[in-house]
Design a protein around this nucleic acid. Structure first.
Length: 261
DNA sequence: CACCATGTTAAACG
DNA sequence: ACGTTTAACATGGT
């Protein structure tokens, strides 16, 4: 699930569930999600701390406290939930933070592709340095600059987190479809008008997706038809094409998004 | 059993 | 040397 809108949803969960609350107890049910930190140190450094206002950059969630910061990345299957401590533990609940006042924050993840880091300010800065500007707030000049000097396809540029942070595979296809751009177009070849369209559509898609806390699989969106038996373009009815672009499964409309020459 | 999946990244490539 | 693409990661569904 997690692309920018999903992680923004997790930020809201963290904010409403834990902000201003003290951590009574940290439990690691599967240490496979801990990155560069032991269960012992996670507990020692966090128990007794109070969660502050959380931040998000791209697909990274920063759970700040009055001590160190927990960096969370959700891979393809992770999530953050606010539960009651007595709620039964789900099979993929990997780490739980029991808060003073009767709530429990849970990091749940099936595949364990990513996980949790414990970071001081310097480590937070190092992580964010490797990220491009946040896709939800990037201005048009910065967006243009990031894409125009890319050599590869426009899709690989959109989904490269060091170029632009937050866009994943589903979002990229949706944005390209709305912008009427073929995913395999070389990023450098886009005209100013095309790049402008891309930026506008990106912001538009992100705004609606963040409202839904996910990329909504609406019938009028490309995303709503990825898994159809006979997928057709919601705009013109042309059968959608599916292939590998930038190493990922990619869906586009061959009529609305003409192939590069 | 083979192949697919919304994540990143080390290694391979040109 | 450098940027881009591929293979690998852990796990489950089709």
């Amino acid at each position: 699930m997690p692309e920018l809108p999903d992680v923004e949803g997790f930020r809201k969960v963290l904010d409403s569930c834990a902000r201003g609350r003290r951590i009574a107890r940290v439990e690691v049910h599967d240490a496979g999600v801990l990155r560069g930190v032991s269960t012992r140190r996670l507990r020692r450094d966090l128990e007794g701390r109070t969660f502050a206002e959380p931040e998000r950059h791209g697909k990274w969630l920063l759970a700040r406290t009055d001590g160190p910061t927990v960096l969370l990345h959700f891979g393809m299957t992770g999530g953050l939930l606010c539960c009651a401590p007595e709620d039964e533990l789900a099979p993929h609940d990997r780490v739980t933070f029991t808060l003073v006042g009767g709530r429990q924050l849970r990091y749940r993840d099936q595949r364990k592709l990513k996980g949790l880091w414990l970071a001081d300010e310097a480590a937070v800065a190092r992580t964010l340095e490797a990220q491009g500007p946040d896709a939800a707030s990037v201005g048009r000049e910065e967006f243009d600059e990031a894409l125009a000097r890319r050599r590869g396809t426009v899709k690989s540029g959109l989904t490269d987190q060091s170029v632009l942070a937050g866009i994943g595979n589903l979002l990229a296809d949706e944005i390209l479809w709305r912008s009427r751009l073929h995913p395999a177009r070389p990023a450098r070849d886009l005209t100013d008008g095309e790049r402008r369209r891309l930026h506008t559509e990106m912001r538009r898609v992100l705004r609606s997706s963040m409202k839904a806390d996910r990329v909504p699989p609406r019938p009028s969106w490309l995303t709503g038809h990825r898994d159809d038996a006979d997928p057709r373009c919601p705009r013109c009815g042309t059968p959608l094409q599916r292939d590998r672009v930038a190493g990922r499964g990619t869906v586009w409309c061959p009529h609305c998004q003409p192939a590069p020459s």
